[in-house]
């Protein structure tokens, strides 16, 4: 059978016999699916990296806030962390995407289309992950013996020199395992952005079931998205392993 035949078929996965289901994969289908999935994966990657870029530093700021001597700031940060960690990311995403539309007279302030969905997703993911990171940072900073800061202080180092020259690297070494855990979770959490129809990897896979690119009823592209997640998280695991090894020169 020619591939052209399949191109114009809109067939349901469910009313095929077992052997016919496997024939739904031929080269033209595969290349169409792969390019669509890769496009979705690019959107996933973009969300992943922008979330890290925003949440890693924002988490540090929140952790400083939750360790601050000024009580109102400390409670504000702790409340934020409590709310964000206490509710599902999916719900936060929905609220951040839809609520502004109710609040502003002129309608939804998010840009229209995919760019608006992407921006809303970035906002929700950065806020969510920053709160988790902040708690990891706090543990890491508090885990560095206080004697280290005191030694820096009696040697005349400023507070910021103590942090950047003494505490920071020891903290990074301590937090690397829990951070790598969170980062790998983030790879898969990006799929939650589908709830506001952001066109990430799962969305791309699912589109072949609903009908897209001239196909519908194809379920294997959805299964195949797993390969992307697996390969990418595998790569990250290797990377974090290398980082941990690099910092193993001191105790």
């Amino acid at each position: 059978m020619s591939s052209a035949f399949w191109q114009f078929q809109t067939i349901s996965f469910f009313n095929k016999t077992h052997s016919e289901r496997w024939f739904l994969m031929d080269f033209a289908v595969i290349s169409t699916v792969l390019s669509a999935l890769t496009e979705g994966f690019m959107q996933t990657l973009k969300l992943f990296f922008i979330t890290l870029l925003g949440a890693l530093p924002l988490g540090l700021i929140i952790s400083f806030g939750s360790m601050n001597r000024f009580a109102p700031l400390r409670y504000l940060c702790k409340t934020l962390v409590w709310i964000i960690r206490g509710t599902p990311l999916m719900l936060q995403l929905i609220i951040i995407f839809y609520i502004p539309g109710y609040l502003f007279e002129g309608g939804n302030p998010w840009p229209s289309g995919e760019s608006g969905r992407f921006l809303a997703a970035c906002t929700a993911f950065i806020l969510n992950y920053a709160c988790y990171f902040s708690e990891i940072y706090r543990g890491g900073i508090e885990g560095v013996p206080v004697g280290q800061q005191e030694a820096g202080q009696v040697l005349g180092l400023t507070k910021s020199q103590v942090f950047f020259k003494i505490t920071l690297l020891q903290m990074i070494k301590r937090i690397l395992p829990p951070i790598s855990n969170e980062v790998i979770t983030l790879v898969k959490d990006t799929s939650i952005a589908r709830i506001i129809s952001m066109q990430e990897l799962i969305w791309a896979g699912y589109s072949f079931l609903k009908g897209s690119h001239g196909y519908s009823g194809l379920i294997w592209p959805l299964f195949f998205t797993g390969v992307y997640y697996l390969l990418f998280s595998g790569l990250l695991t290797i990377l974090f392993g290398k980082l941990e090894k690099k910092l193993s020169y001191f105790k």
């Binding site: 013996p145 004697g147 280290q148 005191e150 030694a151 820096g152 202080q153 009696v154 005349g156 003494i166 690297l169 020891q170 070494k173 001191f250 105790k251």
Partner: peptide
């Protein structure tokens, strides 16, 4: 602070 130096009981060397 720089008038004085302090040697700690448990050294507090910077491990890195």
């Amino acid at each position: 602070q720089l008038n004085f130096g302090l040697v700690f009981q448990n050294f507090n060397l910077f491990p890195q």
